[in-house]
Every structure is written in C-alpha cells, then in structure tokens.
Computed example of a mutant assay.
Amino acid sequence: MSDDEDELQMDFSLDQSVSDGHGLMGLGPLLFTESERSLMERMRQELKIELKQGFKSRIEDVREEILRKRRAGKLPGDTTSVLKNWWQQHSKWPYPTEEDKAKLVEKTGLQLKQINNWFINQRKRNWHSNSQSLKSKRKR
C-alpha cells in the first residue's frame, strides 16, 4: 500500500472506532466530543505538514536526480549538428581519427568518451544497418 492509502486506511479505522462507539484494541468505547475531534484533526494536519517539511529537501533531491537522469541522455542540438556534419562528410568510413576526435571535443565541448559513445551509437543505429541493407541488395 502507498503512504496515502495507509493514511486513508488509518483515518477510516479511527473514524469507524469513534463512530461505532468502540475503542481501539479492545480498550472499550472511545467517545470524543466535537472539539476533541477537531483538535485531533488539527494535530494530524500539523504533524503531516511537519513531516513533509522534514523530508522536503530529500524529496527535492530525489526529484532533481530523476530530472537530471532524464536530461542526461540528450546532447544539445548544436553539438549533435557538429557531429552529424562530420558523420555526413565521412559516411563511407565513419571512424574519426584521434585528431578528428580532438577537434570535435574542442568544437562541441563534450568529453572524448561522449564523442566515442556518440559515434558507436550512431554506427549501430545508422551505418551498420545501412551496410547490411546494401549487402542484401547486392545479393539479389
């Protein structure tokens, strides 16, 4: 059960025990006045707010981490256009030399590992499949 479901279940249990005149855990009837119920509700709301505030920074950290991971897979458009230009100019053999990679690192601001990974992924997605389709066309 989620925390919200647990909370609703607990609220329902408390409301039931109060409304049917039976106490919790067989302790006998618990009858609350309207002001006591109101006080308990205010205390419950205050506790809920305190807990949320206490965990607020941790919740924000987790939220930021999720967003960072979501963004991590995308390179900026201007960066990819530089890489795609190189790719198009060298489409027959898209394996950049170390010198080419150094220039691309300088132009794009990416790390060498990112450049290497981009070319690996690009070849897997585009070049190998294109060369396979060319081979199959030649066999026909």
Rank of each mutant, 00 (worst) to 15 (best):
W118R: 04
K101L: 12
K137P: 02
V62A: 13
A72C: 03
K101C: 11
S133P: 01
F32P: 02
K107Y: 14
K69G: 14
R68T: 03
D78I: 13
Q88I: 00
W118Q: 03
V18I: 05
R58N: 10
Q132V: 01
T97K: 15
K139F: 03
L47H: 12
I59L: 12
F119C: 03
R70M: 15
P96W: 07
L112Q: 03
G109E: 01
G77L: 15
E106A: 14
E99N: 11
L39P: 03
E64S: 07
Q89W: 02
Q16N: 02
K52Y: 14
K84L: 10
W93L: 11
Q53V: 10
Q16G: 11
K103D: 01
L83Y: 07
V105Y: 04
N130V: 12
D61S: 12
E99W: 07
E7Y: 14
W93G: 08
I66D: 05
N121I: 04
H22P: 01
L83S: 08
D15N: 08
E65H: 10
L83I: 06
Q88G: 03
S81Y: 10
S91Q: 10
R37Y: 10
V105G: 06
R68Q: 10
N117D: 09
E64M: 13
K124R: 15
Q114W: 09
S17F: 08
R37W: 07
G77Q: 14
L110F: 06
N126A: 05
S13R: 08
S136H: 10
E60N: 12
K56C: 12
N121W: 07
R71D: 13
S35D: 06
E34L: 13
A72D: 07
T80P: 04
R42I: 02
G26C: 05
S91H: 09
R68I: 01
G26Q: 06
L39W: 08
I59N: 09
G73K: 15
N126L: 11
S91T: 04
N121V: 08
G54P: 04
E7N: 10
R70F: 09
K84E: 08
R68F: 09
Q16F: 14
W118V: 06
L39G: 06
S57V: 14
